[in-house]
Computed example of a mutant assay.
Amino acid sequence: MASTIRVRATSNGDITEVQALIQHPMDSGFVKDAKGETIPPHYIQQLTFEHNGRNIFVADWGTAVSKDPYVKFSFKGAKKGDDLKVGWIDNKGATDTATAKIQ
Score class of each variant (00 low, 15 high):
Met1Arg: 11
Ser3Thr: 11
Ser3Val: 06
Thr4Pro: 04
Ile5Cys: 11
Arg6Cys: 11
Val7His: 08
Val7Gly: 09
Ala9Pro: 12
Thr10Asp: 10
Thr10Val: 14
Asn12Asp: 08
Asp14His: 13
Asp14Ala: 10
Ile15Cys: 07
Ile15Asp: 10
Thr16Asn: 13
Thr16Asp: 10
Ala20Asn: 03
Leu21Tyr: 04
His24Met: 06
Pro25Gly: 03
Ser28Tyr: 01
Gly29Val: 00
Gly29Trp: 06
Phe30Tyr: 15
Phe30Ile: 07
Phe30Leu: 15
Phe30Lys: 15
Asp33Thr: 03
Ile39Gln: 09
Pro41Arg: 02
Tyr43Phe: 01
Ile44His: 01
Gln46Met: 13
Phe49Ile: 05
Phe49Glu: 00
Gly53Lys: 11
Arg54His: 10
Phe57Asp: 00
Ala59Ile: 13
Ala59Arg: 06
Ala59His: 05
Trp61Gln: 13
Trp61Ser: 11
Thr63Tyr: 06
Thr63Ser: 14
Thr63Leu: 09
Ala64Thr: 02
Lys67Cys: 00
Pro69Ile: 08
Phe73Leu: 01
Phe75Tyr: 06
Lys76Cys: 02
Gly77Pro: 12
Ala78Thr: 01
Lys79Glu: 08
Lys79Ser: 05
Asp83Met: 04
Leu84Glu: 05
Val86Arg: 03
Gly87Asp: 04
Gly87Tyr: 08
Gly87Lys: 07
Asp90Arg: 06
Lys92Glu: 09
Lys92Ala: 07
Gly93His: 06
Thr95Asp: 11
Thr97Tyr: 10
Ala98His: 09
Ala98Lys: 13
Ala98Glu: 04
Thr99Ile: 13
Ala100Tyr: 01
Gln103His: 13
Gln103Glu: 15
